[in-house]
């Protein structure tokens, strides 16, 4: 608490929100990626799916690139039904993240695509 109060919760929120904005923009470069949840005041989390690649396969490949995401129902199975998806991937940003972590995520998603495309060759 001392640490957080020293930084100021407003500053923490601003930092996280800036990361959220930047990451949301960065992920838009993938046409096969769908983001779920776009509330203005939402926390710094992005839930998404990649067309034709299951969330758990995406998560395993991202993990091999050193990126930790959550994959699955996120304890919200009725919501998955509502969106008609079997599962989602969720990237969360916190105080300890930097802009460069977003670049790492983008690179990781490119690796996911490569692993999947390779099987066509």
């Amino acid at each position: 608490m001392e640490y957080l109060n020293h930084l100021g919760l407003d500053a923490v929120q601003q930092h996280e929100h800036a990361l959220l904005e930047c990451a949301t923009q960065s992920l838009k470069q993938f046409p096969e990626l769908t983001i779920y949840g776009n509330a203005k005041e939402k926390a710094a989390v992005i839930s998404f799916t990649l067309k034709n690649i299951h969330a758990h396969d995406v998560a395993t490949i991202l993990d091999s690139e050193g990126i930790a995401v959550r994959a699955g129902h996120h304890c919200a199975m009725p919501l998955m039904k509502r969106f008609q998806v079997p599962a989602m991937i969720r990237a969360s940003f916190g105080l300890y993240n930097h802009q460069k972590d977003i670049d790492v995520l983008v690179q990781g998603l490119k690796v996911v695509q490569k692993v999947w495309e390779k099987a066509y060759v």
Binding site: T60, K118, A119
Partner: peptide
Amino acid sequence: MSDLQELYQNLIIDH
């Protein structure tokens, strides 16, 4: 072959 390549080998992705 890396662990990842072994996991997602062509036969698995094809099936």
